[in-house]
Design a protein around this nucleic acid. Sequence first.
DNA 1: ATTAAAATGCACTTCTGTTGCACGGCTTTT
DNA 2: AAAAGCCGTGCAACAGAAGTGCATTTTAAT
Lengths: 138, 138
Amino acid sequence: MKEIESTLQNKGIRPTAMRMLIYKFMAEKNSAQGLSDLELAFTKADRTTVYRTLKTFEEKGVVHQIDDGTGVLKYALCEPGCRCDIERDLHLHFHCNACDKTICLTEHKIPHINLPDGFIAEDANLVVKGICDSCSTY
Amino acid sequence: MKEIESTLQNKGIRPTAMRMLIYKFMAEKNSAQGLSDLELAFTKADRTTVYRTLKTFEEKGVVHQIDDGTGVLKYALCEPGCRCDIERDLHLHFHCNACDKTICLTEHKIPHINLPDGFIAEDANLVVKGICDSCSTY
DNA sequence: ATTAAAATGCACTTCTGTTGCACGGCTTTT
DNA sequence: AAAAGCCGTGCAACAGAAGTGCATTTTAAT
Ligand SMILES: [Mn+2]
Ligand SMILES: [Mn+2]
Ligand SMILES: [Zn+2]
Ligand SMILES: [Zn+2]
């Protein structure tokens, strides 16, 4: 818990109790979390607090936002050493149609995409849907 | 207009006046349209009618849905001969950060993605954001 | 202890997508 | 042609998620 505190401080975030709890919660999960997931996990806290905590985390490069196409935004902790506050890390995201979890495949970078003349790429989002390893090994 | 009528009939859709107008409108646009775009273009028609028309078109493989990450779902006509009603055509979508338009790059298929062991791909969505050709040639 | 700044909680709003139900026209059957 | 039924349309209301304004509490600095 002490190391969470210093992690947040290193990122320029004041380590309140709530923020450390949310960080801890997300660190223990291996899948991306939506606002309602966190809201459900911390019934004592207000939705707005969780919401603004995520926004703060995002600004400071602690988490990155994921649009997996389900209609609800997900968040996941950034890899240690990533500079998500400067430029997005273009890795692949996988959404399991069975367990409905979304996970980061940080080792799988989005391949370079050839575009028609005149098109300039600035960002990319690649989401693969299917069956995850946990669900395929029944 | 007669050929729109037969196009719809060939897809198993009864060609009402409203449906033909919506089809025509989308055929004239070169970018994907959101529900509110159509709602704005056809102020005489109800939002629900447009909504259900899009759903019908989608089921019958006339249009395909696009999640470009803006938070609003877009729709675009399918290519002639595509079987979107059976299996999605996995082409690239481009969203311009300048003009805010989203277009289909139907010639640019999503490359095959290597996944870790146990992961099974069923679908994929690739959206590239940046500056489109119209906006980059000022 | 005082004080200022930042974080939290509550209420409310906005936006998008979706559904229930009733009306009316078009199509099919008798 | 008349009757019956299906289907498209419109109105209203709902649901879920994201975001904002403001008062209150907590935190950190003096
Ligand atoms: Mn990720
Ligand atoms: Mn497309
Ligand atoms: Zn799974
Ligand atoms: Zn553009």
